[in-house]
Amino acid sequence: MLTLLAQANITWHLLPLAAAISLVYNASRYEAPSRILQRAGKHFVMILFILAMILGVLIALSYQL
């Protein structure tokens, strides 16, 4: 699994990184496991969405360069 990740495009490393950050951040904010998981899921999606937006902006700005 780790080998696969290391050989994949570097962008895929974002997924475990975002998941770990979401989980730890929300674990430090809440105590109830269900709340932690729920919030972490939302934050995970939000991180990916924001980064996808930034990627889209960068692609648009570099179009036909």
Binding site: L17, A20, I21, V24, Y25, A27, S28, R29, Y30, E31, A32, S34, R35, I36
Partner: peptide, 24 residues
């Protein structure tokens, strides 16, 4: 580096409990 920085949150949680509440 992120592992180290995240542990700062964990240390504070161990010291002072969850920052926002207990999910009630």
């Amino acid at each position: 580096m992120i592992a180290g920085l995240l542990n700062v949150l964990a240390v504070w949680d161990a010291f002072d409990g969850p920052a926002y509440g207990y999910g009630l």
